[in-house]
Design a protein around this nucleic acid. Structure first.
Lengths: 331, 331
DNA sequence: TTGTAGGCGTTATCAA
DNA sequence: TTGATAACGCCTACAA
């Protein structure tokens, strides 16, 4: 910077201003500085800048896992929105481990970020403590109490929408394959919502008809297999995420069952694939990309105006495709 | 840090050493420092540390897109390997735009990273220039010239393996659905490899039997549709990535064609889903997670020992499942 | 509109 | 083994 200043015949301070606050510098001076900077190939040092200004132009995000169509999409849209404002995205994943999440928060905070985006509202006391003393805005996604800065969707309602659709089709024995419930308030919410909807209809969703599996196609297949092997197998299955729901369809089909004739399957998420599998999956649309975009908006807003906490609840809706049909007559 | 130093009755320099180079400090002193640090809740400032030391403990990665099972997996394993060594991952994506890649390189470099991982070896002159003057190790992945620090797989061979398998099954009219070829040397390589294999067998893969599509399920469906609508539709199709190949299967099935009886389909990548779709997809296994892991190893190695350039070529292999069968008798 | 000067929180060199 | 002290490269009142 000193070199640029000399080359442009100004002081280092003016170079700094010409770059970060162009309006404070006379146009003629500004141009001389920029020319000199370009000629000398000057690149401001981000760390020095961060140290002096306290701002890193970086937002951190910690997701349960990178290797998931949902979080990949989420990060994708967040990264895009951040990049548009000149911010960068620092990502970490905790692989469903609260301890790993704590560690990720710790290192991200130490590394220097201007804001942090997390998934879910449920976390260890230790992590919560770190966040409380973070000194940077924190935005929660998917779940979040009304007082939090958060972008939420109604996971209970998502589960309920799927269940109500199936109930409306006459299904009475409905099963659900969910992700591991520990440290996953999204899955917990969806299960609770489905259960509540069934209760309202005078039906039950006993634990025996709920299978806890990994959030993968394989998990869906395994969970569906378990439910189909029951003495009284369900006539319909809800997947806690689409990936699981699609796994359920594949397992049913692998056993020679037709979907939806022999087994109705509904999902939650509406990932791209849902529309393309056979049969196209009936699912609850969660606006994943919008969550990412909105989360970026909220952190950026809170960074610009410290203390500001916004809460956004994004609408969800049932997308009826062709993986569910009327239940066969039962007793 | 000054507070900690005072509380421990030592100088700031000793606090620094006690934390970063424990061995240089007497055990008794070290413990006093750590105790004081813990009591005061001291957290080293990453930016100050970066400015003073020149190391950021951060590695940048720029991928074509975040929203892809392959790159998500890749980043996942890289992030894990980096975290184990105390490094963090800064990610950006360029959405298949060379200009966006340039910009991403520029900002990551400015932000301060100790190393950079890129996908593919093909890029704009401008980006290449930035990298040349980057001052930090750069590791290429998937593609890379032998002189580069890179983790490569043989994309030509991948295309060839798929094609040879189909040729061996008696197919003579083989089509291919690839991703957009511009700025994607992986897809170019796979296509070239398939073409070369067919040529060796006295067959041709004319452009008319190659469909360029987006790297999605929908792209696969569209590409397959285009090929099936040909006057002489292929009896087998290769997908440039599994996602496309699976899209091809879905399109065929949606048209009432049985896979593989009426159309054989082969993919390249071996994503998790490949084993679970119906029929299970015959594909070329690309060790995506290992690429990520190895890339982390290489950058870390180059960071530790500047000037070191390692090149790793990872093996690939054909995984025969059930989406391909013998060609029907033709002409 | 521009320059001066102090400081951001560490690390690293050199003595002690 | 520990302590001064000078960078690290930039930002930002404050003054001119």
């Amino acid at each position: 910077m000193v070199d640029v200043a000399q080359a442009a015949g100004v002081s280092p301070a003016t170079v700094s201003r010409a770059i970060t606050q162009p309006k404070l510098v006379a146009e003629e001076t500004r141009e001389r500085v920029h020319a000199a900077a370009a000629r000398l190939g000057y690149r401001p040092d981000g760390m020095a800048r961060a140290l002096a200004s306290g701002r890193t132009m970086t937002v951190g995000a910690i997701v349960p896992m990178l290797d998931s169509p949902i979080f990949a999409r989420f990060l994708q849209s967040m990264q895009l929105a951040l990049a548009r404002e000149g911010f960068q995205l620092l990502v970490a994943s905790h692989e469903m481990s609260p301890a790993a999440e704590t560690e990720a928060v710790r290192t991200l905070l130490a590394r220097g970020i201007d804001g942090l985006v997390l998934v879910g509202a449920e976390r260890s006391r230790e992590t919560a403590g770190l966040l409380a003393g973070a000194g940077v805005p924190v935005v929660l996604t998917w779940c979040g109490h009304p007082a939090d800065a958060a972008v939420t969707v109604d996971n209970e309602k998502a589960g309920a929408l799927a269940a109500e659709h199936l109930i409306g089709l006459g299904h009475r024995r409905i099963g659900m394959v969910v992700g591991h419930l520990a440290f996953n308030d999204r899955q917990n919410g969806r299960l609770a919502g489905a259960r509540a909807a069934m209760k309202r209809a005078g039906l039950a969703l006993p634990d025996s008809r709920v299978s806890e599996q990994s959030l993968t196609l394989a998990g869906g297949r395994a969970g569906c297999a378990a439910l189909l092997d029951l003495a009284e197998p369900p006539t319909a299955v809800i997947g806690g995420i689409d990936m699981i729901a699609i796994g359920c369809m594949l397992e049913a089909q692998a056993r020679g069952l037709a979907v939806p004739r022999d087994l109705s399957v509904a999902g939650i998420d509406d990932i791209d694939m849902a529309a393309h599998v056979m049969p196209p999956l009936t699912t609850v649309h969660i606006p994943t990309a919008r969550i990412g975009h909105k989360a970026a908006d909220l952190v950026l807003g809170a960074i610009a105006e410290p203390g500001r906490v916004e809460h956004a609840d994004l609408p969800i809706e049932l997308i009826v495709r062709r993986s569910c049909c009327r239940a066969p007559d039962q007793n």
